[in-house]
Amino acid sequence: MVDERRFLNRELSWLDFDARVLELASEQGIPLLERAKFCAIFSSNLDEFFMVRVAALKDQLAAGIERTSVDGRTPSQQLGEISRRVAELVDHQERVLADELIPALRDHDIAIVSYDDLDEAERKVLDEHYEERVFPVLTPLAVDPSHPFPYISNLSLSIGAMVRDPETDERRFARIKIPDKLPRLIELDGGRFVPVEQLIASQLPGLFLGMEIEEWAMFRVTRNGDLTLEDEEADDLLELVEMELRRRRFNRAVRLEIDERVSEEMLALLVEELELHHADVSRHDRMLDLTALIALHDLPRPDLKDEAWPPVTAGRLVIADELDRPIVSVMRDRAIMVHHPYESFSSSIEAFLKQAAD
């Protein structure tokens, strides 16, 4: 008889791992921009967790599989505990951002500011940027009987708006996708950044001429990203992978992240159209998709980063290069162990693959 108490749940223990990543964002001994990077990594990890692990549990639930894991939890029990744990972690992340990272960044002349906080001259500069760079790549879509609810791609950031025709009093839901090609944070002079979605939201009246903007809110959808390959039956594995990747774009939604200010009406519409449950909704009072913080790490502020560690080439590979010997001949002598990231990836793995291709 297996004692279930002796086992940790795989999914919940993974969340404990990501919690440790988040704790590094609060570690005072780590340079500030590295801490912001860990906050972004936490969000990126959580995206993958939902795309693969939560999606797999939802697939089991949809298939009627209620077999317990080794720790004695059914898929539905695991999803319930994951929902509660993720809510705690996201709340903690937002408190770390608001109470620790943003004030510390401001003390070092780096700030993420709201469009509403800008003066008239700064807004004029951003408005010109919008007309030249942002507006041409926007595609607003309104939902009506002749235009069904639009497809929302995986991990895309969107503005949802309720607009009203003042003449007919007709109300519609509209969606504006934030194009991936746009930088998420627009830099102003002096180390200040404005989220691009705030700039776009400030221009909503111009996108829906003649309509009243009743409300708007940011939202983001995560879809099932698991890749299932029946490679034993495939004639061409590459073709099968390409086909599955195309199909994966249209997989079911597994999570909805949304602005805390959203109305119950808009939230209910999104939940229904995305075929989700309210337990799949994550509400935020800070900017969505904090992977955007990774952009701050590119700032030329070496005083706020770890000192770069230049990787070295493994000793046997150095000798092989000097003797003009291919890597495979060195491997025939005995196996090569390479320690990444301390030893160079480019002079070992990449060089080997290039030599093999040639």
Rank of each mutant, 00 (worst) to 15 (best):
V86P: 04
D117L: 09
A98V: 02
P145M: 00
S158C: 15
P140L: 12
D144V: 09
H92R: 15
R73C: 01
L79C: 09
E131S: 12
H108E: 12
P140H: 07
T168S: 14
I102D: 06
S153T: 12
L126T: 03
D91Y: 02
S76H: 06
L126M: 10
R123Y: 03
N154A: 09
V86M: 03
D99H: 14
L105C: 01
P75K: 08
D119H: 07
S146G: 07
I152W: 01
H147L: 12
I159L: 15
I112Y: 05
R164I: 00
S156M: 04
E122A: 14
E100D: 07
H147A: 14
A98T: 13
S83R: 08
M162E: 13
L97I: 10
E100G: 10
L138K: 10
L155N: 15
R106W: 03
P166F: 05
L157N: 11
E128D: 14
E94F: 05
D119T: 09
G80V: 01
P150Q: 07
P150E: 09
R172F: 08
R73S: 09
E88W: 10
P140D: 07
I102A: 13
I112N: 00
R73W: 02
Y130S: 05
P136M: 08
V96E: 13
H147C: 12
S146K: 07
R106H: 12
I159K: 05
R85L: 11
P140W: 13
P103I: 04
F173S: 00
Q93V: 03
E167R: 13
A98W: 03
E167M: 10
E131T: 08
Y130L: 04
R171D: 06
L97A: 02
Y130D: 06
D119E: 12
E120W: 06
R133L: 07
E128L: 12
Y130C: 10
